[in-house]
């Protein structure tokens, strides 16, 4: 909980609003701690509401872990742009990045909690998606 363990699955938060993305990341840091690689991105390239592929790629790079990265998204474009970003990753990394079908704030906290216990990527995704189960 106290120190960053690079073996833990990384978490990326993608929202149309940079404030939501940053706020969700704050919640993860406060509630779960620093044991999980974490990055957020939000807004389009002009600073308006939206998402952009370059920002998502950068966030994936920041939160990268050999165990993989789980991406939490809010609406439509956040998901399609995240999928596009995953497609643009080097082939050896592509399979280790998953977009979760979970609410962005709750999913990020739950995914990070799961990751902080050393769970593999599939378990992190499954746990976040339990919110809709």
């Amino acid at each position: 909980m106290s120190s960053l363990r690079p073996g833990n699955v990384g978490i990326v938060i993608v929202s149309h609003s940079p404030k939501i993305a940053e706020g969700a990341a704050d919640m993860v840091r406060q509630m779960v701690g620093d044991a999980v690689p974490l990055a957020w991105t939000g807004g389009d390239v002009d600073g308006g509401l939206g998402t952009n592929v370059a920002g998502i790629l950068e966030a994936i790079e920041t939160a990268w872990s050999p165990a993989g990265v789980a991406i939490l998204v809010d609406l439509g474009g956040a998901e399609t742009n995240s999928e596009m970003a995953v497609e643009m990753l080097p082939e050896d990394r592509r399979a280790r990045v998953l977009v979760c079908n979970a609410p962005v704030v709750e999913g990020a906290v739950i995914a990070a909690t799961e990751s902080s216990g050393g769970s593999p990527l599939a378990a992190v995704k499954r746990s976040a998606e339990e919110f809709y189960a």
């Binding site: 909980m1 509630m31 779960v32 701690g33 906290v109 909690t113 902080s116 216990g117 050393g118 769970s119």
Partner: peptide, 10 residues
């Protein structure tokens, strides 16, 4: 809840 889960996972 997060703390309890983290502890349990150990």
């Amino acid at each position: 809840s997060v703390k309890l889960t983290q502890l349990a996972k150990g």
